[in-house]
Design a binder for these strands. Structure first.
Lengths: 198, 198
DNA sequence: CTCTGGCTATAACGATCGTCATAGTCTAGC
DNA sequence: GCTAGACTATGACGATCGTTATAGCCAGAG
């Protein structure tokens, strides 16, 4: 699983495990005790490594997932926007399938839970940055491959939004149909956007 | 009176309040106590009206939201797919804006939380049905307005997925940018799908 | 060797969770 | 008015939550 390697040092295992657990259960329902057990680390260690508690752990988990996905996306986009899209979709597809539709995107999971009080918690800020970074990478490559410069941001937003939504729909339906249907639509859209001679 | 009269709008208020709270906090983090308070109903009443507990309440909340959205969608689609899309988007836009980015889609919220054990809880089944019903309504209208019959399901899936994803992204970013960008993309796609002469 | 400091082990704190039981209130039908 | 049944009020149960405190282990520096 891309978001949860299991042989790194303790601290990293905790972060990766938190990302995985958050993607499954949601932010509020992912308990620190479960994260620790999931990462084969003692509960005390989580507060040793993350003295600011759950908020810090959640923030690092979101950043970890966001950065990992961005890295894969950046690398695969070198082969063009369609290849990047396929890698992006294949990544999520693998997570959903390998978990038997139980895991999804931790960034989305954090995004759909109400922040406390009237301040934006750092985990939500990290989620925003992750989404925007993915969009930015897509925009860059779309433009570099001939897509209309003004239309690229809209298409990138559509890609990220529809993939995130489709992941959730596929989990609910316990079927890859939504994700695969969206994949087909997006691929055609990208081809049309970069290949069209005006 | 045994069946007919379930008295005051108390029960309905609880269901609607549960849908709202679930959309804000997520399924696991939306407690029955908060739902009761939010609906100005006593805690005991929730177990009186929903003897199967939280699972039943969540299921009815998802069905309620799914049906309400489907009703609006069905009505507005009579004026065509673009009008339907605008109503769909406007509905969610209102929920997000009016709640100051705190509320979203309860169907999505239920979809992104891991089911217990190895069986599918009824709330998740209800979520699947809600998504599929929205897609079905879109497919019908797209076809009725001249969209390619084979392409309509893919476009409908893309619409639902991207709107759901964009709602979450807008909540995270505390900005309507993602939802508005997706709106523009989808509108152009629908126009192209129904209006294009081959 | 001692000693230090990063890590772990264990237990507890108050709070809140889902759920249930019991008793009380109210109202509709006789 | 009386009674049955729909609803409410109240409080408790075991479990689990985030968090903290305290003591113990154990490698490496001196």
């Amino acid at each position: 699983m891309v978001l949860a390697k299991s042989s790194a040092p303790s601290r990293d295992r905790i972060v990766a495990g938190a990302a995985d657990l958050i993607s499954r259960r949601g932010l509020n329902a992912a308990s620190i005790r479960e994260v620790a057990k999931h990462a084969k680390a003692p509960l005390g260690s989580t507060y040793h490594y993350f003295p600011e508690g759950k908020q810090q752990l959640a923030t690092e988990a979101v950043r970890y997932a966001g950065t990992a996905v961005a890295g894969i996306l950046r690398q695969e986009l070198h082969a063009g926007p369609v290849a990047g899209l396929r890698a992006f979709l294949g990544l999520w597809r693998g997570i959903v399938v390998d978990s038997d539709f139980r895991a999804g995107c931790p960034v989305l999971a954090v995004s759909v839970e109400e922040p406390p009080a009237d301040e934006t918690p750092p985990a939500l800020v990290a989620a925003t940055k992750a989404f925007q970074e993915w969009e930015r990478l897509l925009v860059e490559t779309l433009r570099a491959h001939g897509a209309d410069a003004e239309q690229a941001p809209g298409l990138a937003a559509l890609i990220v939004a529809s993939v995130e939504g489709a992941i959730a729909m596929s989990r609910a339906e316990r079927s890859m149909r939504p994700l695969d249907q969206v994949a087909g639509q997006l691929e055609a859209l990208i081809v049309g956007a970069v290949g069209r001679p005006d």
